[in-house]
Structures are given as structure tokens and as C-alpha cells.
Design a protein around this nucleic acid. Structure first.
Lengths: 362, 362
DNA sequence: TGATCATGCAGAAACGTGACTGTCAACGCG
DNA sequence: CGCGTTGACAGTCACGTTTCTGCATGATCA
């Protein structure tokens, strides 16, 4: 009776269980569970009473027990395919941070939390956490982790369309091909005669799609491709590749860099060779960083809208988890945004003294 | 008998339980558990046999059940005190990303995973996840979440020393006072006569300690303080404050900016006012971003060593979780590193060859 | 040879919750 | 008055593990 309860409570002084609440409120465990979860048919008086007692005891239901019983943990895995031994590559810091922030907010608004899990980890870590679903950023060709998760029946939504026949539940991505073509047209319209590309050696779909779009554009226009590829996870290699690109005999008069640090690297290389931006060299890079708004000169960037992607990924995933047939398509394409600044305008509209910084919302 | 097992397996076709493994291997549940966990006393033959059967069935132990039974989830909360409604402020993107990356790696190496949880969330999200401990970045004065966690008996380690009487288990922090004094001395040695400060209006200990260190230094040296404070979570306010600081009648000839974007903002403001860096204005800011290595000119930065902090925080926390009396002190101070670049050296060691500038007599 | 002991394994009790089933009283209705 | 119905709860099982206890079996020793 009360002796049993006392001995129980004695074992865990800080935690009150549902039994203690039931005993303190003078009702059964069932009534407590129903009262707190809004289930069952109870008079409001009982419901209020139970809630009050639970609050007084500081009762918090055990997440582990609830997960075991219901099969739902409220946890979503967030994993980034990586090429080193670190959980995520830091060429994409700003993108990852923005995307993760938006995803965290969106998940939280629907009662879920995010667990950071690296793709390189062995199964023991993955199986140690009960997940309701997983977000995979930039899945690689035949990711064993993704296959394993899908095999277990867990929904997997990827940021970036999956390569090969990776069996994800859904994916969200930008239209990278259209984005690259838009940039190339933009540069050509600004007077570029020979546009170069700074790209990566990795096999992810972002790099692949962007590069092939560039090559096809060159073929269509009739320009010889001018590009340098480097391992994107190595920050020093980026600076070297930028330098190499501008040192070529067939030096381009405009460059698009696929990765975040390319802007500053290209700018530094241009200074070394005495090239003025944008007079001698037009510059665009793909970045979410706000520093490019106040470089000298400000650099035109392509934003992949990580916040919209992060939000969309979470919505689709949670819809799949909860079995809601989302009205969103399973493959969702988020538009990119070209933020045009001085570096890609041969004739800047106004050589204004101090461009008032626009709030970089979104 | 086998009928019962069949009916069980029929309910969950994708997941094999420990019972199924036991039945398939012809042993008891206990034997399976002991064999897989390395417990008990079993001959190696049985152990191998059970493991082989488990692998064949694709058995993965239920994390929820294990957590319920053992009381350990292998999950560590990671929360950032925020001033907006977003999970973390993006004035500290690079710091947060580096710190989180290191923390994730360190946790993973010891078998733990990190759960991103915002400090603003109500209890329902926190109590929905079973945590073994929590890392709090920049705890505010009387954080209710921290108090609640400590009251539940969970270890809490903070990045940044706690303000007020916040009852954290341990904390890791830089010696911000020494860092600021070091920078001010460095600037004074470079010839600065009046050093300004770009600081924040928030009440966190980083801002507070740094600002008071600056004020005390001014008092000791006999210089009138010249500083502007702005809400650090607002990116536009930073640019405005930088501009205001250089527009003052008592314009400083050197500035230290406490936050990551201050470097580019101050540089842009200096250009607007025709101030050359470092000839007319010495510049230092606190940042982890690598872009300051290739700005024009490169800007001296103070690194708070987020990777070392993230690693240390996790080590201390897991030691506390596992009851190991760590030989590390409960309050750990990580040294900062001043990365000296052109912007804070009145006489650069060698004027780089590339820019066709006239020899800087001075 | 019988007592002792280590070995190899099975049974069963938790862990804390959610959900199903059952019970008892009150009540309406024919 | 008997009977079905409904409200308001209590009892109990199951989720899938870990772990404690305990029972056999063979080996060892006095």
C-alpha cells in the first residue's frame, strides 16, 4: 500500500511516477493517464483535480516508457554525408547552420526534436536512439545508413535529390540546373565573353548537376569550358584552385564558384593578379553568408534558400511519420534566389557611397 | 509456443525482437541478451552462434526498451540561449557550428548523440525526450530550463560561466577578461591612442565580462571609453553601430568588435569614411570565420577555440553522467588565441608585392 | 563417494506508460 | 420490476529489454 509507494519513491527521490500521482489524487493509474492525455470519459472535475495533483508533485511522464508503449519517440535524425571524419563539412557552414536552424524550428513547432547523427557512424550509435524518421543532407550514391533505415520502415527525407536508386521516402531540392543557367545568362548579359567555373571533385548531385549544366551551356553557346575542380572539403584547396583558374592562359572574364568560400578566395586571387572586380572580372558564388554584402566590392551570390528547404523537409517528413497524406508532392523543388551585387554588374546602376544594407531576410 | 511467436512476428514484419532471435538460435532470451552485451558467462561458441543468428535476422535492440530498463538514453541535450524565436542566434554561426561539430564528434566517440533543443521551448518538448545530460551554451541569468533540469538530477554543463547563482554541474569558458586586456595591449603596442569597443546590449556573461574589462583597462590607462552597444542578434544593428562608432567626434583610431560580423561591418564603415586600415584605423574582432584571412586587408581575429570548448564540455558532461570523477576541474578555462593579421599592425612586416601601391612611407 | 563448486543457461521480475477489458452504480424504458 | 445502457472508474496486460535469481549438469576435492 503506502509502504510500497514509499519504497518506490525512495528509490528515485527526484522523480514522481504516474503511480504516485494516482495515489496522491486518490484515483487509479488509468484515470491519471486519461486525465492528462485528454482521453477517456471523465468529468471535468476529476480531470482538473488530477492535473493539479500532477503539477504539485512535479510529475513528468517518462519519455522512454511512452516511446516504448506508443512506438513514437518524437525524435528526428539529422545527418550530413561527410567526406572527412567530422560530422559535417565546414565548407557549408552557413548553409548547414541556416538549414538546421529552420529545421529545428519547424520540427519543434510540431513537437519533434532533432538529433545530430553523422553518416559515418556505425550502427551501434544509430540503433541506440529511437527515431521516428530521418533527414539526410546530401545523400551519397548508395548510402548504407539510408538503406538500413528504409529497410526498417523509417521514413527518410533527403535535402538534395538522391543519386542512383537510393530509396528515400521523399526529397526536397533546388533546381540546380536552372540556377546555373540563370547565372550564366546573367553573366553573359553583363558582358562576359568567357565564363569559368570553380567546382568540386566530389560525386554529390549538387556538384554533378551544376557542372553538367555548365558544360551543356558552354556547348550550346559555343564556348570552351574553363573550370577547375578541387576537393570541396579542403579549405586550402579552394584558394589554390581559385588561383589556378585565374592563372590560366585562357583566363575567364567571369567566374561562378559553386561553394561558399569561393567568393573571398576568387576576390583575393583577383587582387593578386591585379584584376579589378567587376571591371576585369565578373564574380558570382553560391553562398548563404552575409559577409558578401560588405566585401569590396560586394559579391553577387546565389542563395539556395536553406531555411525554406529545412522547413519543407521537416514538414514532408513529419507528414509521412504521422501518416498524413501530405498535399505536398513527394519531390519538392525550392526556387533559388540570385542576390545581384556589384561584382556581377559591369555597369553598376549607381556608384553609391554606402549601399544601405538590406535586411537579408530569408 | 511457436504459434505465439508467429503471431508476434506477424504484427511487426520489419522488426525482429530479442524473442525471435532466442527462438531462432534455440536459446533463451537471457542468453541472447548476455551474448550480445558481453555480459554473463557463456562459452564463445554460444556467443558466436547467437551473434550470427542475430545478424542474420537483422536484429536491432529497441532503444526505447533499453532506455526504459537501464535509465540511460545515450542522448545529450544541446541548447542555446536565444533572444529571438529562433533556436540559435546567427551572429555566432561560425562559433556555434564549430562548437557543435566538435561536441558532436566528442559525444559520438563515447557513444552519445546530441539533441538540439531551444531554450525557449516549453516543458512539453523537453520532457518528451529522455536525456542523460545537457549542454547549455551561454546560459542566461536565471534560466528556468536549467533549474528544472538540475532539479531533476540531470547533469548540466554550460559553455560560458553561468551568471548569478545558476546551479550548473560544471562549466567551460574562456578567460574573456584576459583576452580583452591582451587585445587592448596589442593595439596600444601597435600605436593606438584611443581604442573603441563595439559591444552588445545583452546581459550574457561574455558581453558583460568583456565590456567591464575594457572599461577597467580604460580607467587604468586613463583613456575615455569610446564604445557603441547594440542588440547582437540584429545583423543590421551591427552595421549601424559600426558606422556610429566611426562617425563620433571622438573617433577612435582602433576598434575591437566583440561579435563575428563586426569585422566586415567596421571595414565597410571605414571605407565609407575614407579611413585606411591599418594606417588610420586598427581593427580586431572576435570571430571564428576564415573569411577574415582574405579580406582586404586581412583582419586580426580573436578565436575562442570553439572546438576545444565543445570537446571539453562533452568530456566533462559524460564524465559526470557516468559517475567518473573526472580529473578535470569542474570549472575549466580554455585559452583564447589572437590571430594577428594586417589590420592590427601599423607596420606590416612586409608590404606584399602584388598591389601597385606607392611605398607607404609614414 | 558424497559434498562443494563453477559453469551454462532458463524463468521471471521489473522499468513506466497506454490501452483494453471489466465492474458497479445509476438511470431510462417497456 | 427486469433489463439494457451509459457514465466513471479499477485491474491488468503488453511494449522489449536488462538483470537478478535459481536450477540443472558436470568437474573437483576431502
Amino acid at each position: 500500500m503506502s509502504r510500497a509507494e514509499t519504497s518506490r519513491r525512495g528509490s528515485r527521490p527526484g522523480r514522481a511516477g504516474i503511480r504516485d500521482v494516482a495515489a496522491a489524487a486518490g484515483v487509479s493509474i488509468t484515470t491519471v493517464s486519461d486525465a492528462l492525455n485528454g482521453k477517456g470519459r471523465l468529468p471535468d472535475a476529476t480531470r482538473r483535480h488530477v492535473r493539479e495533483v500532477a503539477d504539485r508533485l512535479g510529475y513528468r511522464p517518462s519519455a522512454a516508457a511512452r516511446t516504448l508503449r506508443t512506438g513514437k519517440s518524437g525524435l528526428i535524425g539529422l545527418t550530413v554525408t561527410t567526406y572527412g571524419d567530422e560530422p559535417f563539412t565546414f565548407t557549408e557552414f552557413a548553409y548547414f547552420a541556416e538549414m538546421a536552424r529552420a529545421a529545428t524550428s519547424a520540427a519543434l513547432a510540431r513537437g519533434y526534436a532533432l538529433v545530430i547523427l553523422p553518416a559515418t557512424s556505425r550502427h551501434d550509435v544509430w540503433s541506440n536512439v529511437a527515431l521516428d524518421g530521418t533527414v539526410v543532407i546530401d545523400p551519397s550514391d548508395h548510402d548504407p545508413v539510408v538503406s538500413e533505415l528504409v529497410r526498417q520502415g523509417l521514413p527518410v527525407v533527403s535535402d538534395g535529390r538522391p543519386a542512383g536508386s537510393l530509396p528515400v521516402t521523399a526529397w526536397v531540392d533546388n533546381d540546380h540546373e536552372a540556377a546555373v543557367l540563370g547565372i550564366l545568362d546573367h553573366l553573359a548579359a553583363a558582358g562576359a565573353r568567357r565564363i569559368g567555373l570553380l567546382t568540386g571533385t566530389t560525386t554529390d548531385t549538387y556538384t554533378h548537376l551544376s557542372t553538367t549544366a555548365y558544360l551543356r551551356w558552354c556547348e550550346r553557346i559555343g564556348q570552351d569550358p574553363v573550370y577547375e575542380a578541387y576537393p570541396a572539403h579542403d579549405p586550402c584547396a579552394g584558394a589554390v584552385a581559385a588561383d589556378r583558374l585565374l592563372a590560366r592562359p585562357d583566363r575567364p572574364d567571369a567566374v561562378y564558384g559553386l561553394f561558399d568560400p569561393n567568393g573571398t578566395d576568387l576576390l583575393a586571387a583577383a587582387r593578386r593578379y591585379g584584376l579589378r572586380v567587376p571591371e576585369d572580372l565578373l564574380l558570382v558564388c553560391c553562398s548563404e553568408s552575409t559577409v558578401y554584402a560588405s566585401t569590396e566590392p560586394p559579391i553577387t551570390t546565389l542563395s539556395l534558400k536553406p531555411r525554406r528547404i529545412g522547413t519543407a523537409v521537416i514538414q514532408v517528413l513529419i507528414d509521412a511519420i504521422e501518416g498524413l497524406d501530405s498535399d505536398q508532392p513527394v519531390e519538392q523543388v525550392i526556387p533559388t534566389e540570385l542576390i545581384v551585387r556589384t561584382s556581377s554588374q559591369r555597369r553598376p546602376p549607381r556608384t553609391t557611397v554606402s549601399p544601405p544594407r538590406s535586411p537579408e531576410g530569408k
